[in-house]
Nucleic acid binder design. Structure first.
Lengths: 336, 336
DNA sequence: CTGAAAGCGCTTACAG
DNA sequence: CTGAAAGCGCTTACAG
């Protein structure tokens, strides 16, 4: 495996005694080429470990075959919640690669949309994938204004038109709450993520829906919100217990908050799940590792990544706007 | 911010009444151009939000200005240890961007080195950054054979010549052990990562060195190894306690294993740090979050990422092979 | 089915 | 200091 000898299709053409055009067609599986010629050329190329020059190809084709994965600049400490990024990146990368695309990573600052110009106008990338970043809505507005091809992870804003992939938050809320109801809980609380998030609103709707189907009242005193961090989860749990000590079940919008809530419950002398059952959300690796192991709602993140890749490419190639909703699943462990 | 109007340097040339050559020189800060002309052209380009076409530039310059971050395919569950990847990627990305390079992410399988050809021979990337991936040595051999530009995170193999950045493992082991000695511990155990890893051997050397400086014996019964996972950490701790119940301090090669070891110690009825003091390694976010908060050795990972980027680019541009060793630091918390 | 030639949008040696 | 022209390595409409 020494240094590359055969550099261009012109080299291959010379060796095969054909024109560059023919080599290009053979290597690109063009229909207008003789079977025999093609196989001969492909064999020579393979033998010499030849790879077509991507840059020249991109210039000629006027596309980069590269997608940018957009995420926040990593200044601060990482939390376990960021494992989500790694997991979805794996899925995206796999999906892109299968379609002949590469994945660039772009770290963006909250209030700067220059990256759109930088990467798109220079032809570096053909489109963007957004997952979580501060001021996502702001960036989405700028992407729309620029008519940039992109897709996002998360629920679609009303009155907008762009590609999305999201989990089934409504059903997630329903499954979690139904499970609590089925185990005989009657005072079931809700600890949400930020209330302005659509995902959170859907999960709440699922919660409400499940309670009503079971003939239970939705009590405002049992509903509160956090910001997904563990400290906010602990604080939320404390607030709930102060207002209503009869709570016997909680549906929490993230595993991290759920684990913090469980700690708080124990500090306050409640047993989990005996006194209070807890269901989380996400099924990060810490959910299974926690003691007691966390009952939670799982979203298939690698699958989500794959869809983000495929549907963005589809949009770039056909203009079809898709909004995909992925199924979620209840994972029963020890806390409920 | 509408769709891009001005597409090429030819457009700018027309507007400025100069040739394409002149525009190119102005935009690239060439010395052989009039100050006045340059400023006029730059102003026009900025006004029209013009970005030079990266693909054409790359083809002309015969370089991609792109570096591949190579990591393992993400099949399995993620663990907190993988947060390391996110953190170092942030540093690398920042370092590359500052030098005008982009970061591509490549997920590789253990036994397949085709990715080297795929990305290098096609001109997609100018070099590779390797952090952790299975069969790293195997990949390094293939990179060397192909004469590919690359840099790795981790200690350098003997008799090889390539760029590396690594933490000061020798001093890390020394600092951890010295701290245990200073707090009066005399039966200090060592739980390493895989013993064939150079990093682990250096940490062991630091441990040994610190013990000897303190006039303490190195006891083979107090030395054991794991694979960085929490289960292996718990097993290692158990083995140590079975062989020698007088242990009053442990230096563990990762935070994950350290936390598992602490759990095990408590199960066996030992108090931490009263009966047994524990020092970990890495200072992942879980170290501070753990109860009790973990005393550990910190490496500046974002800084490491930045150096990986800079030194690889330096190598590509000048051929200079660098082996950088980053300082480490003892972070004292509750477990020792 | 195959080839000669133009074109993708840059950079730069060469000439002025 | 500036411009005309060749070249980077592909793809593809056009002609055969």
């Amino acid at each position: 495996m020494a240094k590359k000898q055969v550099q261009t299709i012109a080299d291959i053409a010379r060796m095969a005694n054909v024109s560059k055009s023919t080599v290009s067609r053979a290597l690109n599986d063009s229909p207008l080429i003789g079977m025999e010629t093609k196989e001969r050329i492909v064999a020579i190329a393979r033998e010499h470990n030849f790879r077509i020059n991507a840059t020249a190809r991109q210039l000629s084709l006027q596309q980069s075959n590269t997608i940018a994965f957009v995420t926040h600049a990593f200044h601060k400490e990482f939390s376990v919640a960021d494992l989500f990024l790694l997991e979805i990146m794996g899925g995206i990368s796999r999906g892109l690669y299968a379609n002949g695309y590469d994945m660039l990573v772009v770290h963006v600052e909250p209030y700067d949309s220059q990256w759109i110009h930088h990467y798109l106008d220079s032809g570096r990338v053909d489109g963007f994938i957004l997952t979580t970043c501060p001021h996502k809505q702001h960036h989405i507005q700028d992407l729309l204004a620029r008519e940039a091809p992109f897709i996002t992870w998360g629920a679609q804003l009303p009155n907008t038109m762009y590609c999305t992939v999201t989990g089934d938050n409504l059903n997630g809320g329903k499954l979690a709450t139904q499970h609590l109801v089925r185990s005989g809980r009657r005072q079931i609380a809700f600890i949400g993520g930020p209330p302005h998030e659509l995902e959170v609103q859907y999960r709440y709707a699922g919660y409400e829906n499940a309670l009503q189907s079971a003939g239970l009242q939705v009590e405002p005193a049992l509903v509160t919100y956090g910001d997904y961090s563990n400290t906010s989860g602990a604080a939320a749990m404390q607030r709930l217990l102060e207002h209503s000590s009869a709570i016997d079940g909680v549906f929490v919008n993230s595993d991290l908050m759920a684990i913090a809530a469980i700690k708080k419950l124990r500090q306050m002398g409640r047993r989990v799940p005996d006194d209070v059952a807890v269901v989380g959300y996400d099924d990060l690796s810490i959910a299974a590792q926690n003691t007691p192991a966390l009952t939670t709602i799982r979203q298939d993140i690698p699958q989500a990544g794959k869809l983000l890749a495929q549907n963005l490419i589809q949009y770039i190639q056909t203009g079809a706007v898709t909004n995909a909703i992925l199924p979620v699943e209840l994972v029963i462990r020890e806390t409920a």
